[in-house]
Design a protein around this nucleic acid. Structure first.
Length: 608
DNA sequence: GCCGTTTTCGGCCCGACTGTTTTCAGTCG
């Protein structure tokens, strides 16, 4: 969905009740109102103002602030306590005042007052595709319709067709839109990065072989490597004469279950599994400008265009134009940036989090790349819950370009995966030496040792014999924040682990992260000289980009690990690289960009 | 309501598609 990935609609459509979290254990802890809840309250406020006829720019300001808060790294509630809300770009005095009220009282009186004036259900109408402010107001005022159910009934009865700018066709469309909306409401809205990437890569491969296609690639939040992706944006460069046939080919691809719309430049389809994909056909000479435009993010593009306007230039998906309409750039993405006085920026940086300023001053960071990763320090074998043998993992890792790996099966406590005992670890170490020699890749005899409930380490007296130890929490993930923080800090301070594995335990769309005071954990890591894992498994991506950024700022080395349970999963590293780049990590911030020898010397330095 | 190489007022991103019109409003991305 182009640069609207974190769209206002998305936030609004997945509304949750905002206010104080329920339950005796958390009562009164106002700082638990998180960024997402604050953002949703502001989107609600924007919707209410919009329906109430408030000035559009004021409505937009609330939405901008909501987006900024949703994407903000730290805790906005903490900032509010310190009176530093102005640190968030897009939050001024007005929004700060409303946030404070929300945190103190659990609601915004202004929103409640507006809501009281409006019939309940009206906001839901605006979440329907094709229904915006004007239509919602129209059906409410002219037909007294305030709920989706009423709207559906009116459309089925043919009671809408006489309204201004309505007709039979629109009625039919609305009925279909409501059905689709109901269906979608039951399905997950955003997919993990890996799911989206595999689908997009398949689409790009198919479209690349269609006659007339000069170039094809994906853009959108996927190109920016957001951890979850809403819609896919596929771009094709082609001449106008071929556009029609290319659209037909796209709509007829295997895996397409529904065509939502088809025009000269854009076709939208729904794929099996419910994901939406949009194809744009652009002229060859606009390829760079189109890639730039449809990669987003929205905030990045707005900031970039605002800069262009100041220089009396106009930027669109067709190019950069001067006042006289002369085209300055378009076919090449880097040239588009250069035309407005900026350096090209990696897509992962394009979130309007300082990258434009960095580009202006030529201080953009050099970002880590997959090829920089010399080793992979977390993987499993058939010895515990892996699906591939030690031999196969070593061979596959070498083939993938790694020069060393750590074998880190689970520890004894995890009985349900036949966790490793001391004896089996000693046996495995011998085998590792043998495989190492035969396969010609450096192997570290390691372990993913469990951090027990009290913060002590499983097999604690054996860890000193190992060459790489990942310490991870696998059980009792739901501890209260204070206890969990103490538990993890104790493990870090034990001197027995090299890296904290999947630190929050989250699984995208499946399991919420454990409650953890990350600032305390990060300080402990920095002090003890222990690394933090960015687990690249597409279901985890743990830690996220915000925590990875904290690590960079705290000087804590980050380890990008596949956590592979089969040879195929060694490929997971590429997803984590995207997250690391979004956190502005360079090769120097990532520990496994170092050689095996350098890694060992890092380890021994710490242990001395 | 926010913000500043246009700086405390006066701006605030731009184009395609759809369904309704017969020149365009509304919606979306």
């Amino acid at each position: 969905m182009a640069y609207h990935c974190a769209s206002d609609r998305h936030v609004a459509a997945t509304k949750i009740r905002c206010g104080l979290p329920a339950g005796p254990a958390r009562r009164g802890r106002i700082h638990d109102v998180d960024n997402v809840a604050i953002a949703r309250a502001l989107v609600d406020l924007a919707d209410l103002h919009e329906l109430g006829g408030t000035l559009p720019f004021k409505v937009r300001a609330f939405r901008t602030a909501a987006r900024a808060i949703e994407g903000f790294g730290g805790s906005v509630a903490e900032l509010a306590k310190k009176g530093e809300l102005a640190e968030v770009r897009g939050v001024g005095d007005g929004v700060a005042r409303r946030i404070k009220e929300l945190l103190e009282t659990g609601k915004i009186a202004e929103a409640e007052a507006l809501r009281a004036k409006l019939p309940p259900g009206l906001l839901d109408l605006m979440n329907l595709p094709g229904v915006g402010l004007k239509t919602a107001q129209l059906v409410w005022q002219e037909r007294g319709i305030t709920t989706v159910d009423e709207l559906e009934k009116a459309a089925l009865d043919g009671r809408l067709r006489d309204l201004a700018r309505f007709g039979e066709k629109r009625e039919d469309k609305l009925i279909a839109a409501i059905a689709a909306w109901r269906k979608r409401a039951a399905a997950p809205k955003r997919r993990p990065l890996a799911v989206a990437m595999l689908a997009a890569e398949a689409l790009v491969a198919e479209m690349s072989s269609v006659p007339g296609v000069l170039a094809c690639d994906y853009a959108g939040s996927l190109r920016r490597r957001a951890e979850t992706v809403g819609d896919l944006d596929i771009l094709v460069a082609a001449s106008k004469d071929d556009a029609h046939a290319i659209m037909d080919a796209f709509a007829a691809l295997p895996g397409v279950v529904e065509v939502l719309g088809k025009g000269e430049t854009k076709t939208s389809v729904v794929l099996e599994g419910g994901m939406q994909a949009d194809l744009r056909v652009v002229p060859r000479e606009s390829w760079g400008a189109a890639m730039q435009y449809f990669t987003g993010s929205k905030d990045h593009n707005v900031a970039m265009r605002t800069l262009a306007v100041k220089k009396k230039l106009k930027v669109s998906e067709y190019g950069v134009f001067d006042e006289g309409g002369a085209k300055l750039a378009g076919d090449d993405e880097a040239a588009v940036y250069e035309a407005i006085g900026l350096h090209w920026m990696a897509p992962e940086l394009r979130e309007n989090r300082g990258e434009i300023e960095a580009s202006q001053t030529a201080s953009l960071p050099a970002l880590v790349e997959l090829a920089d990763l010399k080793g992979d320090l977390h993987m499993h074998t058939t010895e515990t819950d892996g699906k591939s043998s030690l031999d196969d993992m070593a061979a596959a890792a070498k083939a993938a370009g790694r020069s060393y790996i750590a074998i880190t099966d689970h520890s004894e406590t995890l009985t349900f995966v036949r966790g490793m005992t001391r004896e089996r670890l000693r046996e495995q170490k011998k085998k590792i030496r043998d495989v190492e020699e035969r396969q010609g890749i450096r192997l570290f005899a390691g372990l993913e040792a469990d951090i027990l409930a009290d913060g002590t380490m499983d097999l604690a007296d054996h860890l000193g014999e190992l060459e790489w130890v990942v310490g991870s929490v696998h059980q009792k993930l739901q501890m209260p924040k204070d206890e969990m923080t103490k538990r993890v800090v104790r493990a870090i301070e034990s001197g027995k682990i090299d890296c904290l594995g999947h630190p929050t335990g989250r699984q995208l769309g499946q399991r919420e992260p454990s409650e953890l005071d990350m600032e305390v954990v990060m300080a402990a890591l920095a002090k003890a000289g222990v690394a933090i894992e960015l687990n690249c498994s597409p279901l985890r991506l743990d830690v996220d980009e915000h925590i990875a950024k904290m690590a960079r700022e705290a000087g804590v080395p980050v380890v990008l690990s596949s956590d592979a349970h089969s040879v195929r999963e060694l490929d997971h590293l590429r997803y984590g690289v995207g997250i690391a780049r979004r956190a502005w990590l360079g090769p120097a911030h990532v520990l496994n960009t170092r050689s095996a020898d350098e890694l060992q010397s890092w380890r021994s330095q710490r242990r001395s």
